[in-house]
Structure formats: structure tokens, C-alpha cells
Design a protein around this nucleic acid. Sequence first.
DNA 1: CGGCAGTTTGATCCCGGTCAAAATATGTGG
DNA 2: CCACATATTTTGACCGGGATCAAACTGCCG
Lengths: 229, 229
Amino acid sequence: MHRLDESLLAPLPPFSFLERPQIRAILDRATSRRFDEGVSVFEEGAAANSFYLLLDGTIRVVKITPDGEQVTSLHIPAGQLFGIAPSLGRDTYPATAIAASELLTLCWPTSLWHSFVTDYPGFATETYKTVGNRVAEMNNRIVEMSTQHVEQRIARALLRLVKQSGKKTEIGIEIDFPITRQDVSEMTGTTLHTVSRLLSAWEKDGLVNSKRKKIIVCDPHRLVVLGGA
Amino acid sequence: MHRLDESLLAPLPPFSFLERPQIRAILDRATSRRFDEGVSVFEEGAAANSFYLLLDGTIRVVKITPDGEQVTSLHIPAGQLFGIAPSLGRDTYPATAIAASELLTLCWPTSLWHSFVTDYPGFATETYKTVGNRVAEMNNRIVEMSTQHVEQRIARALLRLVKQSGKKTEIGIEIDFPITRQDVSEMTGTTLHTVSRLLSAWEKDGLVNSKRKKIIVCDPHRLVVLGGA
DNA sequence: CGGCAGTTTGATCCCGGTCAAAATATGTGG
DNA sequence: CCACATATTTTGACCGGGATCAAACTGCCG
């Protein structure tokens, strides 16, 4: 295992209050792991033996229903902790984490969680802020699903992805990991058919520009309008 | 303010690890507050000045959309903490808490949160378990809304309420706070009309027995079946 | 170049929302 | 204790968004 640089962690919220030696200590106990696109980092219900920091790539957090349908509850962008079941007093992962793109992660055994929380000032606070944001996002999802039509939900889903993992191009903002119509439908509780029809229509209107596994939002503002006043 | 008894808190999870003197100290800093049915304890977006323990009654956690629609994201039964925005690093309440029935609460200023967490062993851990359960419940809501039909969602919503706040009667298990068709529709993302129709049909089948603002589940098992294999 | 993974598009159907109105409880003041 | 106002529930008729079924099309990779 090659030695990781401290400047990697210093700017990230959970570690931003720490001194270099502390970061060094944290890094020295970390394992670096790579995952290919599509593989799962851990599965729902499995023993939560490790927690992770996402250095590069995007995580898709999914739940799988008894009859095999997938529901995407969240996307996690680079720079955030994930698999932090212990923070909520769980000893098993509440959902499956899938690599939406090739991933680079740091990984610690869950047994270290407690010492991180007690030894490193700000670690707990910052971590719970992250949890808080995710809870807020889930809450919004629930409100959306209860009150909005499919078109609005899809518009908002795209905007969320763009805000979180958008990469500027000349033509618009691109979602910088591979994403299919099916993926979008699993985020919004619809079917790939409906998503396809909608994207086609939006493409005709110049709102988006999408290729196979790629979506570029060209006119975010009009998408916001579609997403509901 | 009359003196509260320590045996009130001792059996509740967040305090179960504490000694009597510690509980005494906590109680002495608490304010006891009563709320009438229908009033709101705090509003979404308001400064989170206090956190609460629900001694008696049921809380309905709602979000209100820009166009005035209400969405119920959670019900909280007696014995649990609520309004614990500080635990997720928020300084404002993420949702509105409404008294589903007459309430009795204890209330502490948010400024005490930090000292509770650091001074009382097990307090943080147990609290985060509660948060974890609520997150899990929200996750389930999302999965349900994405994959299930209205009938299944309503069946599950009733079962959840019955499990959480059920009171046994000769005829079945009764949801022990006033609840209207409208309330159920706000929990499931439907309309009161659909809920009414369904409840009428279920009543004919002997599955439930409902009066104005009252729902009694007579045959939970068949309801589980309806809720999805 | 064959084959799979992803996308598009059409045709059809039905669940559940919307509109409308009446029936039934509950509460309140005189 | 009754009469009226208000809140909740019920039921019917209708309709439309989006799921479902079906099939063709289009990259893309080995």
C-alpha cells in the first residue's frame, strides 16, 4: 500500500478541524480500495465492518425490494463519508452502495469509529451535518413523491445530480458519471419508458442533450421552472 | 412548576444508563409543557431553541409545500425525544411538529444539548439509535412510494400506526389518537376520497372498523397480505 | 460482424385523481 | 334541548397521466 498524502483529507469537512499529525494518524490506519463501475461496495443487511471515505467517483445508494426492483435513495459525491452505519447505532448497513463510476475510497474498520469520534474534535459534528443533509434530502424526496407529477420529479432529480456532480461543458452541465434512463427511473419511481419519452421531448426543446449513458443539462433554468414554481 | 418524578425518565432509552442523581439533574432543568390537539409545537424553519421529550400523546411531523399541501413524514409516539435538530448539526427545525392528540412534553433549551451528550453516558448513542430508526422508516417510505400501489401503501401505513400506537380493544387494535381520512391520505400521498373508498371496502370485509376520527384494525394479518407479500 | 445493453416509440389500458354533491357527526350558542 | 354551523365521511361519474405490453432501433464492445 502506497503512502497517501495528508493534503488529501485536510480540506474535507470531517477533518478540517484537525492538525496534520492527527490526519497522518488517521491516514495510516486507512486502507485504500478501488472499485469498478457497477460493483457493490457493501450490501444492505450485511454486517457493517467498515466505514468509507469516497475519494473519487460517485456512489449510488439503492434498496432492493423483495421482488427485485431497485430504488435509488441517494447519490453520494466524492469527498463524503459513507457506510457510516455506526453513527446511527446500527451494526448492519441499511442500504446497498453501488459504484456509479469507478471509485477510489479510503476504508477503516468500524471498530475505529468510536475513537475517531472521541479523539478528533469536530469529527462527530461534521459527520452529523452530513447525515443531516442526507436526511433532509430524503425528506424532500418523500414530499416530492407525494405531491409532484413525474415530469417535475424527473426535472428535479436531474437538477439535484447536476448540482451535486455537475461538470461544465461548452454545451451545458454534464452529469459526470454514467447514468441510464433506467437509473433515472429508479430515482424517481417511474419507468425507463416514461423517462425516455420525457428526455426525448426535452431534447427537442433544447433543454437537455443526452447520449447513451450521458445526460447534459443545457438549460437548468427552464428545468427549474418545469420542476415546479 | 411542580416537581416531576424520576421514575418518569428512568425506563426511557436515552436515560436508561443513568443514575438517579443524574436523572434528577436533567429533570430539574426541564420545563413541562402541555399542548392541545392540533396545535403545533414548533414550525419548520424556525430557530431550534428547544428540544423535547414526549411524555404522552402523539406527534405528527409534517412538511408543508409551497402551495399549502401537507405531507406527513413521520409519527412519533410517547417516550421519544423530538425536535432534536441539534443532533444533526441544524440550528433550525426541518419540519413542523403538530399535536395529533393532547400532548405532555418535557422541554430543554438547545444550549443544554451539548452538555447532555458529553455528561451523560449512553445519551448520545441511544439518541442516535432513535434517529437511525426514523431514517430507516423514511427510507421505507421512499421505497414504498416508488414501488407500491395506493392500496398497499395505505395498508402499510395503518399497520405502522397500529404497531407504534396501537391500543387493544375487544374488536381489534385501535389507533389511539384521532385520525381522519385526510390524515391518512397525507401519510400516503393520496386523496381523502381514495382513503375513504378503501376504508369503506375494508370495513365491508371486516378488515377494519372505523368511525369518525377513529380507526380500528380488526384483522392485521389480512392487512399485511394486502400490504404486499 | 454478431450480440447485448441501452434507447425509442407506438398502442392500449386502468388506477386513482378530480369534480360534484349528499349524508352524517360534532359542536355551539341561544 | 333544539337549531344551526361546521367538520368529516361517503359515493358517484368522469377522465387523464403514466404504467404496461410490444417491437424496432442504435450504438458499442469483443
